[in-house]
């Protein structure tokens, strides 16, 4: 088995706001192995992006990591100071943000923005080396070398997103986080970009963390996956296991709310209500208020939220395992 590149243990992060602390990430643990792709799925506001931001520690000023550890290649990232973190960013973990449209500074050439990242981490490299590196990256993601001298507004949305992927790979990072990289694109381009990411990941043996609300994309892209709800992971395991035998009521609903192209026709289910406010401390099961058919234990909030191993490598939150 290949070794773990990134391991996150009991990560807790909250935003300090005027109306109280918002616990966006609660007790999240997962690990990513070398060359593996890990998916993080959940509805909007469940804390996916907060997890991504915590990994790079790019969270807003009012966000605090209260406890937990993030270990990248044997190095603890929590508690690092700014200049140590700057070395880790992009070189250790890079990120493809949602909305590539705005990821580029409009007044600086694309090539220069990539060059800048390489220059920061490998100042000894010459200009020619950097140009060569950028050209090879562009070739890998299917862009013309001439894009180096283009300004961002001269590229189409798809081209920008490809260039963002090239940017993310520019310092040969150990882990790449893709935070909803295809959200702003139309389906045809989405498919192209997904294929591009997959190709590059296999080619370079990258460890990838893929964040999406689109469960179909997660199924296509990842080996391992975790389902997040209200700031915590409710189910985690190999992607095929989670899809074939979903254990948590939320995962089941999430799967049943997505249409399937093959197989029998089923009525799609929808989930009423909204995720709970994360300001208040939630005791017991966070999903039970929305659970369509909660078990007695769940309804009475008898069980503590805790991941239990259902089959090897496949964990689910024990509250809702028995719910309908």
């Amino acid at each position: 088995m290949s070794k773990e590149v990134l391991s996150v243990k009991n990560l807790n992060m909250h935003y300090e706001t005027l109306s109280g602390d918002v616990h966006a990430v609660k007790d999240v643990s997962f690990s990513v192995k070398e060359g593996e792709s890990f998916g993080l799925v959940g509805e909007s506001g469940c804390g996916k992006t907060s997890v991504a931001m915590s990994l790079l520690q790019l969270q807003a000023d009012n966000a605090k990591i209260s406890s937990g550890s993030i270990v990248l290649d044997g190095v603890e990232l929590v508690g690092m100071n700014e200049s140590e973190l700057r070395k880790v960013r992009w070189d250790g973990i890079s990120i493809v943000f949602q909305g590539a449209m705005n990821a580029w500074n409009p007044v600086v050439k694309v090539g220069e923005q990539i060059r800048e990242a390489i220059r920061e981490h490998y100042p000894e490299k010459s200009k020619a080396e950097n140009t060569e590196k950028i050209e090879s990256l562009f070739k890998m993601v299917g862009l013309d070398a001439a894009v180096i001298d283009r300004f961002p507004h001269e590229l189409s949305g798809g081209m920008k997103q490809r260039a963002v992927i090239a940017l993310a790979l520019s310092c040969d990072p150990k882990v790449v986080i893709a935070d909803e990289p295809t959200t702003a694109l139309d389906v045809v381009i989405q498919d192209q970009i997904l294929n591009e990411i997959k190709k590059v990941q296999e080619l370079l043996g990258l460890s990838l963390i893929y964040i999406s609300h689109d469960i179909a994309v997660i199924a296509e892209m990842t080996d391992q996956m975790a389902v997040m709800y209200a700031g915590s992971i409710v189910e985690i395991g190999p992607t095929d296991k989670v899809f074939s035998t979903p254990k948590h009521a939320y995962t089941r609903l999430l799967l049943e709310s997505t249409p399937s192209v093959v197989g029998e026709k089923k009525k799609l289910r929808s989930l009423d209500g909204e995720p709970p406010s994360l300001i208040n401390e939630i005791t017991g099961c966070s999903f039970s208020p929305r659970c369509p058919d909660p078990s007695d234990d769940c309804k009475n909030q008898n069980k503590e939220m805790k991941l239990v191993e259902i089959e090897p490598g496949h964990f689910a939150d024990n509250c809702c395992v028995d719910c309908g």
Binding site: R89, W90, F97, G99, N105, V107, A117, E120
Partner: peptide, 26 residues
């Protein structure tokens, strides 16, 4: 507030350079 400032921070670029090169320039 723009996203590219976040990108620049994620790239590990120094604060001073983000301020002068990315924010102030624009």
């Amino acid at each position: 507030k723009e996203d590219y400032i976040l990108t620049a921070r994620a790239k590990g670029i120094s604060q001073k350079r983000i301020r002068d090169r990315h924010a102030a320039r624009t």
